[in-house]
């Protein structure tokens, strides 16, 4: 699903956020991206979502070389990815339903289909009863679940999450992580950036660890090559 080949990212000003990162995440696999803050986790996710471009190296996403994607084509790549953010990125001027429906509206789905898919997504995160609520009235955990529903409503092949439990207490965090694991079970590839090693140990999924922009621990590539 994701293949990094000697990818480096140097920001203007000289800071190298990632240096010569290589790894593979197979289709339908799930992995945690760990490391201290500043280790390059967010940058790695941004490169996959084409929010940033690598300075060197290649990224292949779902068989497509991202360096060959022009800026005009970027939206169409993103439509195959669901992204969950630490701060939810919800829009507070519209109810939960409209927030979750955004990816479908953007992709031109019909009204009827939008309705049923948004309901299904909200049901999966346990918020079906809140579809008419304003996001601001929801708790942090509920807001994050709305964000997750929005990320999966269009059934992307890949789900990315950047510190999705950053602001939540341990109990809620586990709940959210289990939610991701459930999506992985139905075939979605999942990559979650998190610094919460205790939580990851509880769930026990493979890890890709970064330190100062370099890979220091890699469960996923080894497993992958072993399987192939």
């Amino acid at each position: 699903m994701i293949h990094f080949d000697q990818v480096s990212k140097r920001y203007p000003g000289g800071h190298e956020a990632l240096s010569r990162v290589s790894f593979r995440l197979g289709r339908g696999k799930m992995a945690y991206l760990t490391g201290h803050s500043g280790a390059g986790k967010s940058t790695l996710l941004k490169l996959i979502a084409l929010i940033e471009r690598p300075s060197r190296g290649q990224i292949i996403l779902d068989g497509v070389n991202l360096s060959q994607i022009s800026n005009r084509r970027v939206p169409y790549v993103r439509r195959n990815i669901g992204i969950v953010f630490q701060n939810h990125h919800l829009l507070y001027d519209r109810p939960v339903f409209d927030n979750v429906a955004m990816p479908l509206v953007i992709q031109g789905y019909r009204h009827k289909e939008i309705k049923s898919r948004v309901r299904a997504a909200l049901d999966q995160v346990g918020l079906l009863k809140k579809e008419r609520s304003e996001p601001i009235t929801l708790s942090g955990g509920e807001q994050q679940r709305v964000g997750i529903a929005r990320a999966i409503v269009h059934k992307p092949a890949l789900l990315l999450a950047d510190e999705p439990t950053g602001n939540l207490d341990p109990e809620l965090s586990l709940e959210i992580m289990q939610l991701f694991a459930r999506f992985n079970q139905v075939g979605t590839s999942v990559l979650i950036a998190s610094h919460d090693l205790d939580l990851i140990a509880q769930i026990g999924a493979p890890m890709l660890s970064l330190k100062d922009g370099m890979v220091i621990h890699d469960d996923i590539t080894r497993k992958q090559t072993g399987a192939a």
Binding site: A49, I51, R72, P75, Y76, V77, R78, R79, I81, I83, H89, L90, L91, D93, M102, P103, I106, Q107, R150
Partner: peptide, 16 residues
């Protein structure tokens, strides 16, 4: 601004 950013993140084309 927030709406535009989110829309871009979830794959809205510039035309949209």
């Amino acid at each position: 601004r927030a709406e535009i950013e989110v829309a871009k993140l979830i794959g809205a084309s510039n035309a949209f």
